[in-house]
């Protein structure tokens, strides 16, 4: 895979490549971000690297003019997302016994949000979030968001990202992860409860 990558890339002349991709430092940074994203999803260094390579090659092949690096990055990530989605759809191994065992512990933590009666504990009840759009424009918010994602149990994080980052449909996730729809819904419910709680405590409703 990586040999043909290098050959194909070699055929391109400099003037067909977006200028930002010729900037070594920017490209290096972009590759790292892409790899991290890809590895989170695929959990396999080789597959992750392949997806990044193919996405970058795709971007080079269809070289066009970009207004700036943000536009280029958006485009390259869109290609990467498709590559990851393809890989996930082809693959049917994902859940190992360890992860299944750990899911019992996940349940306990989410259960602490609700009383035995099934209603919110008073201090856990979701509050109103002011102005989420301004959070999206704030780079400090993204550090919190990444930290909250990292705090999710691994399986919840992966399924949440398959759904919300890669935008796979339920049946596609169930096939890739070998879980039932009921199981999927439970996992997404827990992931959303945890993630919203983390964002609320660390960003939207900060005390002091």
């Amino acid at each position: 895979m990586s040999e043909s990558t290098a050959q194909n890339a070699g055929k391109l002349s400099d003037d067909t490549v977006p200028s930002a991709l010729m900037d070594g430092e920017f490209l290096q940074q972009l590759r790292q971000q892409m790899y991290r994203f890809s590895l989170l999803q695929l959990d396999d260094p080789q597959l992750a690297e392949d997806a990044v390579q193919e996405a970058l090659l795709g971007a080079l092949r269809n070289a066009r003019t970009f207004g700036g690096r943000a536009a280029l990055k958006t485009w390259v990530f869109a290609i990467l997302k498709n590559k990851i989605a393809d890989t996930l759809r082809q693959r049917h191994r994902f859940v190992d016994a360890d992860q299944l065992l750990r899911s019992d512990a996940e349940e306990d933590i989410v259960d602490t949000l609700f009383k035995e009666s099934g209603h919110w504990h008073r201090q856990e009840r979701p509050a109103h979030w002011e102005n989420p759009e301004s959070a999206i424009r704030d780079k400090h918010f993204w550090r919190i968001f990444e930290a909250c994602l990292e705090h999710l149990p691994a399986r919840q994080a992966k399924v949440f990202m398959m759904r919300e980052f890669i935008e796979l449909e339920s049946h596609e996730i169930c096939a890739a992860a070998e879980i039932s729809v009921t199981n999927l819904n439970v996992i997404l419910h827990r992931a959303r409860l945890r993630l919203r709680e983390c964002l609320e405590n660390n960003w939207f409703i900060r005390e002091g």
């Binding site: 943000a70 990055k73 704030d138 780079k139 990444e146 919300e164 980052f165 959303r192 993630l195 919203r196």
Partner: peptide, 20 residues
């Protein structure tokens, strides 16, 4: 909101302020 935030994240919003 979690969905909107996730899509913005994948679009690279986390880097936009510095990139503009």
């Amino acid at each position: 909101i979690l969905r909107r935030i996730s899509r913005a994240y994948v679009r690279g919003a986390a880097d936009e302020p510095q990139r503009e």
